[in-house]
Nucleic acid binder design. Structure first.
Length: 271
DNA sequence: ATTGTGGCCTGCCCGC
DNA sequence: TGCGGGCAGGCCACAA
C-alpha cells in the first residue's frame, strides 16, 4: 500500500496546537521535564527552564508562523517571559494525554521516549512535545522580530513587496520565514499550483496581476486546507508522488528541487 | 545584503 | 527475512 499523505507542522498545524495549548491557560506549572538537552535551544538547560517555569502559569497563547508562543505569568520572583515551541518536521503537541492527531513523516506510534519536553500542571494535566526526529525545539524568549508577517495576515501589497526586485525563485521567497512566516513546502506548492505560478520563476518577474492572483490563492489555500484540517489535505497532495499527474489537466507533474526542497509542479498550467 | 548549499536529526520505505 | 541506503523538510551555519 502506498504511504499515506504526509503532513508537516506548518502554520495550520501549529494553529491547531495553539488552540490545544489554550486549554492549559491559568494552570499552575508544578514540574518541567526536559530530558533531551538537544531540544533546548539558546543554551537553555533543564535546570534553568525548570526554575523559570515552575510556579508560573501560561496566561496567553500566540502564534507567529510556525512558532508557538506561550506567555508566562509574572510573579514576585519572575519578570515576564515567553516560552517558544518549534515543531520541526515531526513534532506534535499533546495536552492532557489527548488523542494524537494523524501526522505523518514519522509514525503515529505511542513512544514515550519521543517526549522531548513537558510541563506538568497542578491537578494532573500536562503539555507535551513529542518529536521523533528532534528537529523541533524549546526556547525561552525567542526573538520574534526574526519572523516576517504571519501568512494569514499577509496583504496583497505586502506580498508584492516581498517579491519585488528579487532574483530568487518565488517559492524561496514564500518560504523565507523572515519575510512571510508560516508557509512550508506543502502549503507553498499547493498555493503556487492553484495560482498557476511556476515555483522556480524569478520572484521579481511576477506582474501585479500575478501577485494579486497568487495572493488570492494563498488565502484560499489557507482557508480551504484550514477547514479540511491540515497542510497535507491539498488537492495537489495525492499527486505529490513520483509519476503523479496534475489533478487539473492530467499533465505529468514535474519533480524538482527548488529552494532546496522537493517540489512538484505542473509544467503545463504553472508558468 | 542576497542567495544557495549542506548538515543536522532519525523513522520508515524500498530494493537487494 | 534482514540489511543498508535514500528520503522527508524545518532550521541553521556558512560560503560566495
Amino acid at each position: 500500500m502506498r504511504r499515506h499523505a504526509r503532513s508537516v507542522p506548518e502554520l495550520l498545524e501549529v494553529e491547531i496546537y495553539r488552540r490545544l495549548a489554550a486549554r492549559t491557560l491559568g494552570r499552575p506549572i508544578v514540574g518541567v521535564d526536559a530530558p533531551d538537552a538537544w531540544f533546548l535551544k539558546g543554551g537553555l538547560t533543564e535546570a534553568q527552564v525548570t526554575v523559570a517555569l515552575v510556579g508560573r502559569s501560561i496566561v496567553a497563547d500566540r502564534r507567529t508562523g510556525k512558532l508557538l508562543l506561550l506567555d508566562l505569568s509574572d510573579d514576585l520572583r519572575h519578570s515576564s517571559a515567553t516560552l517558544g515551541l518549534r515543531f520541526g518536521m515531526t513534532g506534535r503537541l499533546l495536552v492532557d494525554g489527548g488523542p494524537m492527531e494523524k501526522l505523518t513523516y514519522g509514525s503515529n506510534r505511542d513512544v514515550p521516549a519521543w517526549d522531548r519536553f513537558s510541563l506538568r500542571f497542578a491537578g494532573g494535566g500536562e503539555l507535551r512535545v513529542r518529536d521523533p526526529r528532534r528537529l523541533g525545539g524549546i526556547e525561552l524568549d525567542p526573538d520574534e522580530a526574526r519572523l516576517g508577517v504571519d501568512a494569514t495576515a499577509l496583504t496583497a501589497a505586502a506580498l508584492g513587496g516581498v517579491l519585488r526586485g528579487s532574483e530568487a525563485p518565488v517559492k524561496a521567497r514564500l518560504m523565507d520565514q523572515a519575510r512571510i512566516a508560516g508557509l512550508g513546502n506543502l502549503l507553498t506548492d499547493e498555493s503556487l499550483w492553484r495560482a498557476g505560478v511556476d515555483p522556480a520563476r524569478r520572484a521579481g518577474s511576477l506582474t501585479p496581476a500575478d501577485v494579486r492572483r497568487l495572493h488570492h490563492h494563498l488565502r484560499t489555500t489557507l482557508d480551504v486546507l484550514g477547514r479540511r484540517g491540515g497542510s497535507h489535505l491539498g488537492d495537489l497532495m495525492a499527486a505529490r508522488v513520483r509519476g503523479g499527474v496534475c489533478p487539473r489537466d492530467a499533465t505529468p507533474l514535474l519533480r524538482r528541487t527548488v529552494a532546496g526542497r522537493t517540489t512538484y509542479s505542473c509544467p503545463r498550467h504553472q508558468r
